[in-house]
């Protein structure tokens, strides 16, 4: 088992390298010239050239990539072309916000979604199942930013209950922080809640339908409860997979949520950087996001190895 885990961890490195090369290639295909964008409103050709030199845009592509990579290995992700802020600072400023958004959304979705999913499974094909399933399907189908804006109109503009936007760091003011996060978490979490409900429902149905549950029924209440708990544990495995698969999507979705609610997170920072052609920021943040997601997937794989040794052997040829 240990060797498997180590192998998995090591495989992260080539993966991250590949991602960085892909991103670098993509970024260099972006039209528009950072030098021209940064220069004020007039400039001679020499000034433009000088700016390009300074930004290192005249080196060959492999050279630029190599310079960047060298820096990364030494812990230097470069500086923003736009404001001069070190990329690492930008990341440490922004990452906690997105992280909190995602974490709270997952917690919110799980706390609401799992019990609802169980209800659906137990009350299968009854009214409540239909209603809950239908509502959760609608939740998946709504664009998150639309939900967000509607929430702002209702809770901030009309009711003045919650702030329309902004962010207060948790350690400064826990209550204020939570107030600013309520609406964004709700908007982000709806889709995930719906998915969890459906996954829990189908996973529970799978497990509950099996033979030993029938025998449990005949053996009495206590046994049933025990088996129910056992069933839940097994059912949670696909749910965990579903959540981890959704998280990558949620990071992407955080872009619009952060825009609408003015959260200073990584998603928005990256999108702004793409629009501003701020290459170092894009590369640095892309790297961090990719590493995070890969680590997450690896973590899920590792959990699987622990939970069910059988699963880790599937996919191997005889």
């Amino acid at each position: 088992m240990a060797t498997q885990i180590v192998k998995k961890l090591l495989s992260i490195i080539p993966l991250v390298l590949i991602i960085s090369i892909i991103m670098f290639a993509l970024i260099n295909m972006l039209p528009g010239d950072a030098a021209l964008a940064l220069l004020g409103d007039s400039g001679t050709l020499e000034q433009v050239e000088q700016m390009r030199e300074e930004l290192g845009l005249n080196d060959s592509m492999p050279a630029q990539y190599w310079n960047w990579l060298k820096g990364v290995l030494q812990g230097d992700l470069g500086d923003s072309m736009f404001t001069g802020q070190p990329v690492i600072d930008r990341i440490t400023e922004r990452m906690p916000v997105t992280f909190e958004l995602i974490l709270l959304s997952v917690v919110f979705a799980t706390i609401i979604g799992v019990p609802l999913g169980i209800v659906c499974a137990v009350k299968r094909n009854h009214m409540s199942d239909y209603i809950l399933s239908a509502v959760s399907m609608v939740g998946v189908a709504m664009p998150a930013f639309w939900v967000g804006m509607l929430l702002i109109i209702l809770f901030s503009t009309k009711l003045h209950l919650l702030p329309a936007s902004g962010y207060v760091p948790f350690f400064e003011d826990p209550l204020g922080n939570l107030k600013t996060m309520v609406l964004p978490v709700f908007a982000t979490g709806i889709a995930l809640t719906a998915t969890i409900v459906r996954q829990t429902r189908s996973a529970m149905l799978d497990v509950l339908g099996q033979d030993y549950m029938m025998t449990a029924k005949s053996k009495g209440v206590k046994y049933r409860v025990q088996l129910f708990r056992h069933a839940l544990k097994n059912a949670l495995i696909p749910v965990i997979t579903a959540i981890s698969m959704q998280i990558a999507g949620m990071i992407g979705g955080s872009v619009v949520i952060e825009t609408v609610f003015l959260l200073p997170g990584m998603g928005k920072s990256m999108v702004d950087a793409i629009f501003q052609r701020d290459y170092p920021i894009v590369m640095g943040e892309a790297l961090v996001i990719a590493v995070f997601i890969i680590l997450l997937n690896t973590l899920v794989d590792v959990i699987y190895i622990f939970i069910d040794p059988r699963i880790s052997h599937s996919g191997k040829r005889k």
Partner: peptide, 17 residues
């Protein structure tokens, strides 16, 4: 506050933020 979107800024002004 850097707010690029006028509609977002407007809702902030109306809510007092």
């Amino acid at each position: 506050n850097i707010i690029g979107d006028e509609a977002v800024a407007a809702s902030n002004l109306m809510s007092g933020d």
